[in-house]
Structure formats: C-alpha cells, structure tokens
Write a protein that binds this DNA or RNA. Structure first.
Lengths: 120, 120
DNA sequence: ATTAGTAGTAAACAAAAGGTTAGTAGTAAT
DNA sequence: ATTACTACTAACCTTTTGTTTACTACTAAT
C-alpha cells in the first residue's frame, strides 16, 4: 500500500529547482519580513528598523541592497528634505509576491493555532 | 501622492508574526526542499540525500528530526528488511503546505523567466 | 553647547548553520 | 577477504549571518 504523492515524482526536481530560485531571492531571516513592511506602507530606513523587531542597521542596509538588485524595491533619496530622507519603495514586480506572502502567512497562522491547541 | 499598499498597515505586524511562525518551521536552506522530495514520493534516507543535491548526511539527519518534531513527517524503521531500512513518511499535516510550496514554485519559475529575458 | 533626529558604514566579534572526514554495525554479494 | 549497501553520528572546521560599538555629517530644537 503506497501513499499517494502530493506532487508528481517526475516534477520533483523541477519543483525543487523553482523553489530554490525563489529562496535565492527571498531566503534568509529578514527578506520577507522587510518586504511585508514595505508592502504595508513603511518606507524609511529607521521606520523599517523599528517595525522589524531585532534587525540591526548593518543587516537591514545590506538586505535592502540585495532586494534592490533583485528589482523588488527602488531607493529614492529625498535631498530636498531636512534631515535628508531616504525612501525605499516597492516595485510593481514586488507585488507579484503577494500570493507567496499570503500563503506563508495563512499557514503560519494555522500552525500557531495548532501548536496552541496541542499544548493543553 | 502616496503609493497604494498591498497589505493594510494595521495588519502588518500580524502578517510579519505569522510569516515568522511559518519560517520558524520551514526556514533555512533545506526544509522546503526536503518536504518537496517527501511529497514527491521519496522516502528513504539515502534516496533523499541523492535527490536533494548538496545536502550532507549530518544536516539531512538533523533537519529530518526537526520536521518530525513539528509533525510534518514520521520516521518508520523497517527492521524486517535487510539491510534495515528507514522510511520518512509525510503526515496529513504536511499536505497543508501544498499552497505554500506551489506559491513559491510558481513565483520562482516566473522569476527565472524574468531573469533570463533580462540577460539578452 | 548639548541632545536628538536623518541614514547609514567600518571594525571587531559572536553565534548559527553547514560541510568534511572518518567511523559504527550488520548483511550480502563478488 | 573485500567491497558495498543500509542509516546514521561524532568531532572538527569553515562559512554565513548577525550583533555591538563607535563614528560620519548635517540640521533643528532646547
């Protein structure tokens, strides 16, 4: 009696490959958290650092650079303002991640409920 | 002129929280790759190590333990066989990750196409 | 004059994650 | 007798990731 598979066996390596491509861009502890903050209206450096609990300026800075390189945000310096302000604006391309973020958030919510109900 | 937000501002921290919960279970370089292999019919230790390119036995072993702790697979020893065989079987709970994996795989595929078309 | 806000960077260090090598133990094939 | 397969694990080392502290430079408020 063999268990049914959720994904077809022949598609396995393609599946792994695509997920790897996605994780190359989104992987790590911070990138998705940063994107969610951006997609929720946060734009400035210090604002992001305050919203995303626990991230240091050095890491935030380097993650933002990588996200920009991957076309998920653009950096805009508002030199007219004082103090000089920098805005990190998500691109249209970043909105294609909506389904990914929603799927992860939905599952995370379900999982939390499961954990809590088990700990009785 | 303010950019529309993809996620509502008030839901931002809840969103981040849920994604964090999900990443706690699924985060890291290997867990999703392992789950995809399991969901595609791979069951044995060495089989998994061969399918998932680049993973070492030490890491595979420890990741499998964590996935078991989180209720995503069960470990079954087939002591009747020789050599002794161990099967890692995904649980029903693991199938709730289908949407997450599909969303990531879809996006990864789109992203690869985008990268290739840009490099012309 | 001092403090605080803007947005970072450099250096030094610590922690986490992952890789490499060798080894266990039993069986079966050559 | 040697090799190979099963499924790991221990010890050690490297790489990646992240933290802390101090600092830049300008402006505005106290």
């Amino acid at each position: 009696m063999k268990q049914k598979t959720v994904f077809s066996e022949v598609q396995c390596s393609k599946h792994i490959g695509s997920v790897e491509d996605a994780l190359y861009v989104l992987g790590g502890k911070w990138k998705l958290r940063i994107l969610i903050a951006l997609l929720s209206g946060q734009t400035r450096f210090n604002e992001l650092q305050r919203t995303i609990k626990g991230i240091s300026a050095r890491v935030l800075s380097s993650e933002l650079k990588q996200l920009e390189l991957n076309g998920l945000l653009k950096r805009e310096v508002r030199a007219d303002l004082t103090p000089v302000m920098v805005e990190y604006i998500y691109t249209d391309y970043a909105t294609t991640l909506k389904e990914v973020v929603s799927a992860l958030a939905d599952w995370g919510q379900k999982h939390r409920k499961k954990i809590i109900s088990e700990d009785v």
